[in-house]
Amino acid sequence: MTTHPAPSTVDQTVRAVLKDVLALDADRVAAFDDDTALFGALPELDSMAVAGVLTEIEDRLHILIEDDEVDGEMLESFGALRRFAEAKVGAKKGT
């Protein structure tokens, strides 16, 4: 059985960004779980789209992502991207 994490605003924001920037179907994005593979698996998410997705996440969550933090791992799956964004938002609140 797949786990269903409690929906957070970060979770919703990351989903909305993927839907809006990659022009994905809303139902398809709503069905993403932590294991859904992104970079390399979603043809819509090419290297140009990566910059758009990350910048849109930055704008909507008011966070700053350093270029050296951008690696294949954080974009590997929906769960990895959501956790990365949640950590960034948490770090911002902590300061």
């Binding site: 839907k19 809006d20 920037v21 990659l22 022009a23 819509e44 090419d46 140009m48 789209a49 758009g52 997705v53 910048t55 849109e56």
Partner: peptide
Amino acid sequence: APLWRQSE
């Protein structure tokens, strides 16, 4: 949606 960020 931000059309300026969509690749298509």
